[in-house]
């Protein structure tokens, strides 16, 4: 049984003088505990898929099923992590983290305790009372991870959460997120344009093509590197093999769409 099913999703964006088909015929399933990456060029509708799953946008047609049941708002089950941390600068780190529970009216003393515990787990002890501007980019993104995790989402939606970080921080955070998700048995969908990131973190990689955004090909990550932490995956020979395959696939997509 799959946790999440997207069935034949299509989405149109309208503007005053024109409309664009952002997504077409998007169908895939995600099992509980699975890590999926959506990989593709910018403008292929990857982020739109996440927004649809999160219930932030209603697809023009098609259905999102969670636990085999149709849903319009899967908000309670999903946690969204954006490209940048978007911590509110006028709130302390702790207040930022408690934003989700506060909105869902679940804020209480045990939540505070949980927040502090999670902060410690991501390697940020003693920052709860600081304001975000005094933290580095990597620290802020880790705090944002805690903000997402505290509402106990079933499915984490990661919208290029590492793309605004420097390379070293990015690699470290990949490892951290990977470990945290494994520890808490979370399901995750990562949107990225970084082939290496997709291979090193996921179980399956959905390669997309643009105009309209459709699924081009789905790659299974070899079993040997699935459970390895991202940093070590990058040194594995299977990594290079898969990298080449995906690279070629993306190039073909580009070549196909070029003549227009």
């Amino acid at each position: 049984m799959s946790l999440l099913t997207l069935s034949n999703i299509a989405h149109l964006y309208f503007s005053k003088n024109t409309y664009t088909k952002a997504l077409d015929q998007i169908s895939f399933q995600v099992k509980k505990g699975e890590f999926i990456s959506l990989l593709g060029p910018s403008g292929c509708g990857k982020s739109t898929i996440l927004s649809i799953i999160a219930g932030l946008i209603q697809p023009t047609s098609g259905e999102v099923l969670v636990n085999e049941a149709s849903t319009n708002t899967s908000n309670q089950l999903t946690g969204y992590m954006l490209q940048q941390d978007y911590l509110f600068p006028w709130k302390t780190v702790l207040d930022n983290i408690l934003l989700g529970p506060q909105i869902r009216k679940q804020q209480n003393a045990s939540m505070r305790e949980r927040a502090n515990q999670l902060l410690e787990e991501v390697g940020l002890p003693n920052v709860a009372d600081l304001y975000p501007h005094s933290l580095s980019g990597g620290m802020r993104q880790r705090a944002a991870l805690v903000r997402t995790l505290i509402t106990e989402p079933e499915i984490l939606l990661l919208d290029e959460p590492f793309s605004a970080l420097d390379y070293q921080t990015k690699l470290k955070l990949e490892d951290l997120v990977f470990k945290m998700l494994r520890t808490y048995h979370k399901t995750a969908i990562l949107v990225t344009h970084d082939i290496g990131e997709a291979i090193s973190m996921s179980d399956r990689i959905i390669v997309m093509r643009a105009n309209p955004g459709t699924i081009a090909k789905i790659f299974d990550v070899p079993i040997e590197i699935r459970n390895e932490i991202p940093f070590l995956v990058r040194r594995h020979q299977k990594y290079d093999l898969l990298f080449d395959k995906i690279w070629n696939e993306l190039n073909q997509q580009e070549a196909k769409s070029a003549p227009e």
Binding site: N75, G79, Y80, L82, Q84, L99, I103
Partner: peptide
């Protein structure tokens, strides 16, 4: 994106405004 963060937690329009 600040609103997106709040909406992802299921915030209402008024909550988005006030937070």
């Amino acid at each position: 994106n600040y609103r997106k963060v709040l909406l992802s937690f299921g915030a209402t329009k008024w909550q988005c405004f006030h937070k």
